[in-house]
Computed example of a mutant assay.
Amino acid sequence: MRLSRFYQMLEHEFGAGQGRMLVQDTVLGELGHRTPEQALNQGEDPKTVWFALCKNQDVPRERWWGPDMEPKR
């Protein structure tokens, strides 16, 4: 996943304002107790960050791939 896709999906799922806040302020144990922003800035794969954020926010699994993508089988 590219970083641009991460931010598209973030905005679609949470809205621009809330999405920005989640990326900056949510500390995720799954990411080594870093925020998504810190993890991305330190080179973490955007897909790993996205899935960790989805789990933390209880996003239903069927929406983890965004509005126009299905998981590859």
Rank of each mutant, 00 (worst) to 15 (best):
G17D: 14
E30V: 12
L40M: 09
L10K: 02
Q38N: 00
F14Q: 09
E44N: 06
M1E: 00
T35D: 03
F14V: 07
T35N: 06
R61N: 05
L10M: 11
D25A: 06
W65G: 04
T35F: 04
A16K: 13
M21Y: 08
A39K: 02
L10N: 05
G66D: 07
E37Y: 11
Q24T: 10
S4C: 09
T48F: 06
T26Y: 05
Q18C: 04
N41S: 13
Q8R: 14
G17N: 11
G17M: 08
V59D: 01
E70W: 05
E13P: 00
G32A: 02
P46D: 02
D58H: 15
H12R: 05
V59S: 01
Y7P: 08
W64R: 13
D25S: 12
A39E: 06
K72F: 13
L40A: 04
K47W: 15
W50L: 15
M1S: 13
Q24V: 05
Q38M: 10
Q57D: 05
G15L: 04
P46Q: 05
L53S: 05
E37V: 03
G19E: 08
Q42D: 05
R63C: 11
R5A: 11
C54P: 15
N41V: 02
T48A: 14
F51N: 14
G32I: 00
M69P: 01
R5L: 12
G66T: 07
D58P: 00
P67T: 01
D45I: 08
W50F: 09
W65N: 15
R5N: 04
Y7E: 06
M69R: 14
P36G: 12
P46Y: 04
P60K: 02
R34F: 02
W65S: 15
T48Y: 09
G19F: 02
S4Q: 15
K55C: 08
G15N: 02
G32C: 03
G19C: 02
H33K: 09
G66E: 05
E11P: 00
R5P: 00
E30T: 13
Y7W: 10
R63I: 03
G66F: 03
G17V: 11
L22E: 00
F6K: 09
H33M: 10
C54Q: 09
V23K: 01
M21T: 10
R63L: 14
E62A: 11
Q57L: 13
R63D: 09
G32V: 01
E30W: 01
R5I: 09
W50G: 08
Q18Y: 09
P71M: 02
M21G: 03
V59T: 04
F14T: 08
K47A: 15
R61K: 13
D68E: 14
Y7A: 01
A52S: 15
D45V: 10
G17Y: 12
L40Q: 10
L10R: 11
K55Q: 14
Q8Y: 06
R2I: 07
R20N: 08
W50S: 06
A16F: 09
G19I: 01
L40S: 07
F14E: 08
